[in-house]
Design a protein around this nucleic acid. Structure first.
Lengths: 150, 150
DNA sequence: TTATATATCTTAGCAGGTAAGATAAATACA
DNA sequence: TGTATTTATCTTACCTGCTAAGATATATAA
């Protein structure tokens, strides 16, 4: 790809990220969550259970913030605190993924449908291009995040 | 594209959005901005000057929050309040895009370089695929945001 | 056993958000 | 024209959720 096109696509990818961010925040507000809480609900669905410390490390939040976050989610019965019998200091956060999903789903349904419709427009080969781009970009952003986040 | 692949790609696109979000927040913290402020600095670079009310409408923040946001940026000389001579109630926010860019650039340099390197791996035709995906997705997310954000 | 390290929680203080009302300027209309 | 209404932004009071630092409880090391 030529330099001009590269710069154009880089801009587009920035704009994509910005739009995603805007949309997620708007949906969070609508669903009655703070932007942070909404973000980590998705995180739970993806990762399943983890300890409070792991969550703090992954998110870059302090342990104090994590305590508050778990408290809020627990009050809504979206997660449950359990304790590691082998190390009773540890708090294992057990998400109720179904309940989380069913709570968020109404707000995403239309968007997800339309995303799927959009993706169906792409051919098998085009799909591979997108896949390659996503995978490499995700790796790059995760690396950048990890580097910066210490 | 087949249904299976569609679902896989939808997941990837979600993960992409999440990674972008994480990275942006980490960079914001590093650069000494709140996540919101960082987000809107990029917004200013992209859109140029606008009125406080336009910014409130575009962001979904209340006018009170916008007043605070402009105050913070003005204190850092990143934007300047000017007044519309034809309607003196209006506050026109004049961003100092160069200063904003030079402030953020160090934190993005490496990432942008690597993104460009990654994009160079794609052919002309593949570039068109990515472009199409981005443009349509951005339109879709913007529509979703606008719908939800009222 | 005692010291140290680790995982999470608690507390105090702060930053930035909202809602509601204040202010000032523009517009509409009798 | 003068008065009422609307509009754009700012101010204020209050609230939420973050950090930093220290407390607590448990695990590990010496």
């Amino acid at each position: 790809m030529e330099t001009d096109k590269v710069l154009h696509l880089r801009k587009l990818s920035q704009q994509y990220a910005f739009s995603a961010l805007q949309m997620h925040e708007a949906i969070a507000r609508n669903a009655g969550f703070s932007s942070t809480d909404h973000k980590y609900l998705g995180f739970f669905i993806k990762h399943g259970s983890m300890t409070a410390g792991e969550l703090a490390a992954l998110t870059g939040l302090t342990t104090g913030a994590i305590t508050g976050l778990i408290d809020r989610f627990e009050a809504l019965k979206l997660v449950k605190r359990t304790y590691d019998p082998r190390d009773r200091r540890k708090v294992i956060i057990l998400p109720n993924s179904k309940r989380i999903q069913s709570l968020l789903e109404p707000f995403y349904r239309k968007f997800q449908e339309e995303t799927e419709k959009l993706l169906k427009e792409f051919s098998e080969n085009e799909c591979i291009v997108l896949e390659k781009f996503f995978e490499k970009s995700i790796a790059l952003m995760t690396k950048t995040f990890t580097t910066v986040n210490q």
